[in-house]
């Protein structure tokens, strides 16, 4: 690595904005266990310095389950190394991130099949018999 690259590299990803979020996640887990109340944290509304979002993602790690959704662009829904803590990343048709969320829940709602889609699907299935 050249010295120029070194000086251009972000000096340190730690501006202290990651710890409070991890703390909030921990409290959200407590709420989920005690009262079954899920929590969604919109990461777009929180301040992040260069590298801090990656630091948060690394701190949460990767768990057992991950899913890909194809609707209005790709979305990734992935359980972190901490069960019950889900990392959701919505992308648009141009593959740009349009939303990032932490959901502290048993199953993110968006994974469930929706009634409107089930009804429309059943109608399509019925068409097969004609």
């Amino acid at each position: 690595m050249t010295t120029e690259q070194e000086s251009l590299a972000p000096p340190s990803p730690f501006h202290g904005n990651v710890r409070p979020i991890l703390n909030e996640v921990m409290h959200a887990i407590d709420r989920l266990l005690e009262t079954d109340e899920p929590t969604t944290i919109d990461l777009a509304g929180l301040p992040f310095g260069p590298g801090e979002l990656e630091h948060l993602e690394a701190a949460l790690g990767t768990g057992e389950l991950s899913a890909k959704l194809d609707a209005l662009g790709t979305s990734r829904i992935r359980e972190t190394a901490y069960p019950g803590v889900w990392w959701l990343e919505h992308r648009n048709a141009f593959d740009e991130v349009v939303g990032r969320y932490l959901e502290i829940t048993r199953t993110p709602e968006i994974l469930s099949s929706q009634d409107a889609d089930i009804i429309a699907g059943r109608a399509r299935l019925e068409d097969q018999f004609e």
């Binding site: 609707a71 209005l72 709602e109 968006i110 929706q114 009634d115 409107a116 889609d117």
Partner: peptide, 9 residues
């Protein structure tokens, strides 16, 4: 657009 897509929207 599916209902899932709508929820995402």
């Amino acid at each position: 657009v599916s209902r899932r897509g709508f929820l995402k929207y």
